[in-house]
Structure formats: C-alpha cells, structure tokens
C-alpha cells in the first residue's frame, strides 16, 4: 500500500446511513486485508480532500464513518461526492510510520494460546514477531489498536469468558489480530503480554500516536 505506483483495486463499497447524522462506507462485512486497506485509504483521501458538510471522518476495521450535521447537510449530496472520491481511491498514497513495541511476553494466556496453535511458547512468540503488523484501526476504547492480520497459522477465536479488567499496555491476541490496550478495560481476548508503550495521552494533540496504516513491529523485551 505504500510506495507502490500501481493503483490497487479495492472491494466495491456499500454506502449506507448510520442514523440520521452519519453515512457509513463499508468495504465488506468481514475483516479482510483488502477491505481494511480500502477503509484506511478512503479516510486518508477524505482528509486530504474534504467533502463539504462532513464534520468527522472515522476509519474503522472495514469501513469509514462520515458524520454530518443533520441540520445543515443532505446525505445525498455527500454520497455523490463520496462516489467521486471512491473512483480515484487507488491513486491515493498512504503514509505509514514504522513503530517498534517492546513487549514482555508474560501474559497469563500465553501458554494456552501457544498450545492451541500446537507450538511451544517461545516458538509462538517468534512466529508472532516474525513480521511487522499493520495498525488496522483504533476503536472500542481510547487508544485501543487492532493490529494484523496474522497468517492462517496464528488464528485463535476469542475467549468464551471476559476478564473484567486488564491494565493499560496489555498485549492481546485473538481473531488473527494483536491488540494493545491504552486504558484499563475488560477483554474477551487472550492476554499474551505487556508493554510500556502507551498509545493514549489525553493531554496530547493528537491524543493517540498510532494511526491506521502504520506498521508495528512487536519485539520481545526482557
């Protein structure tokens, strides 16, 4: 997605209302690499070339939410402008910063996850860290990032029960993704490690550091 000169083809999106103050552009109903990349690229394109009447652009895992003022704007006009942007989507270059997140792989679920995948824990950690992951989206809680996607050999379902509270900096694993918490929160994902990296600072501008499309290398820390 970065540095390529060939415009890429993205999944055909659906434009649908989300209430009476939002339009959602969805590139699919399942999390795929192509749908996620399309959502990231569209959000960047809309930031560069804003649509009049749109007050907030929010990239999600496979969609982009466009909020508008229902007192002032008509969604039909916004949707028309959107379609023009979508035609040229493949030409949009996406900047992606590179990050290293030192992680202590000491989570309470590490051994269970490794066993589910038929590996010894150190082999799982090595496989997990083998290549950088893309920041797929921020969501659910302040600074909470989804990173992925892992290959088929590194996919486990979510846990059946929810841990009531895990601390900021928890490194979570499920559904072919690695997530990092930035606040204390409940989770149904496996806790595989912890990091001192903090992706949320309410006094910061912007308040989060990682952006969708950034590349994250997880690195085993002592």
């Amino acid at each position: 997605m970065t540095g390529s000169s060939d415009p890429e083809t993205f999944p055909t999106p659906t434009i649908m209302p989300l209430g009476d103050s939002g339009l959602l552009v969805r590139f699919g109903s399942a999390l795929t690499d192509a749908a996620n990349r399309a959502a990231i690229v569209l959000a960047v394109a809309l930031e560069r070339d804003p649509i009049a009447g749109v007050v907030e652009i929010v990239p999600n895992l496979v969609s982009v939410l466009l909020r508008y003022d229902p007192w002032a704007s008509a969604p039909a006009a916004i949707a028309g402008e959107l379609r023009l942007r979508l035609f040229a989507l493949g030409d949009t270059p996406v900047p992606g910063a590179s990050w290293t997140i030192p992680t202590r792989f000491d989570g309470p679920d590490l051994d269970e996850v490794a066993a589910m995948l038929g590996m010894a824990a150190p082999d799982f950690v090595a496989a997990h860290n083998a290549k950088p992951l893309r920041v797929l989206a921020t969501g659910f809680a302040p600074g909470f990032v989804y990173c992925g996607l892992h290959g088929e050999g590194l996919v486990v379902p979510r846990r059946t029960d929810v841990r009531p509270a895990v601390p900021p900096g928890s490194v979570l694993f499920a559904a072919g993704q690695t997530a990092v918490t930035a606040t204390e929160m409940p989770t149904g994902w496996y806790v595989i490690g912890h990091t001192d990296f903090r992706n949320f600072d309410p006094a910061g501008a912007p308040p989060t550091r990682l952006r969708p499309g950034d590349m994250v290398a997880f690195e085993a820390a002592p």
Binding site: G19, G22, L24, A30, V58, N60, V62, L65, R67, F140
Partner: peptide, 11 residues
C-alpha cells in the same frame, strides 16, 4: 460473528 464497526448514539 460480526466485524466491529462504528457506533452512533441511538443505535
């Protein structure tokens, strides 16, 4: 099993 997506007030 749904992919997590944007929520708006009133959903």
């Amino acid at each position: 099993s749904l992919v997590s997506d944007a929520i708006v007030p009133g959903d």
